[in-house]
């Protein structure tokens, strides 16, 4: 909690400096939040190159419209709202171009931290490492196969670690709607992934 408060305090200070035209402050803010934005974009778009492009666009838009941000403390939520909205725009554009690159490639090449972390944690046991790798891949596929409404909520809840109230604000939807989407998404994930658990 104290750490979260410190993070917000530092963000507020950076946002104040950005408002005054300090680009180095924006670079610092970018460094602090690019991973979060990139992972949200990647999981919603399921495409590495698009996620990188949209991540850049999110920060460019954030910089250019930071004066419209009502409260400095609301920066992270605002950034996530921008990310989700710009992912939706990218998905609409994609209908025309229809080029989807599967996350499989990303996973297979081992670029993801999911795998890097897994290799560090499980390096003493190659067999279990393979299990973990497969599990990670299957979970990711299950998330990316959800409908956009469910995927957004699942990504913000599990990938970003946001609370339901926060997700409601980010997606500008009632808390009840978010809870309902989360429940349905969980039910779908359970159907898709039940074979991986033994009870």
């Amino acid at each position: 909690m104290a750490k979260e408060g410190l993070v917000t305090y530092v963000d507020n200070d950076l946002v104040r400096r950005i408002r005054e035209g300090d680009v180095t402050a924006f670079e610092e803010l970018f460094a602090r939040h690019q991973r979060r934005v990139y992972n949200i974009c990647l999981q919603i778009l399921n495409n590495e190159a698009e996620a990188a492009d949209v991540t850049q666009d999110v920060f460019v838009k954030a910089y250019k419209s930071i004066k419209s941000l009502k409260s400095d403390a609301a920066f992270v939520g605002w950034l996530k709202t921008l990310a989700v909205n710009m992912c939706r725009d990218a998905l609409r554009k994609r209908v025309r171009t229809a080029s989807v690159q599967s996350l499989d490639k990303l996973i297979e090449t081992g670029d993801g931290d999911c795998l890097q972390r897994e290799i560090e944690d499980w390096s003493h046991n190659p067999e279990r490492s393979m299990d973990k790798r497969e599990t990670c891949k299957i979970v990711q596929k299950a998330i990316s196969s959800l409908s956009l409404d469910y995927r957004e909520v699942v990504v913000l809840f599990y990938v970003d670690g946001a609370e339901v109230n926060e997700i409601a604000k980010t997606l500008n939807s009632p808390v009840g709607t978010i809870k309902s989407r989360l429940a349905r998404a969980r039910a779908e994930l359970k159907r898709k992934l039940a074979h991986l658990v033994e009870t």
Partner: peptide, 18 residues
Amino acid sequence: EFDAVMALVESNVPDYTP
């Protein structure tokens, strides 16, 4: 089983380096 699947998702969420 439901709880186990949710725990599995939580412990296997992707976290990629940009």
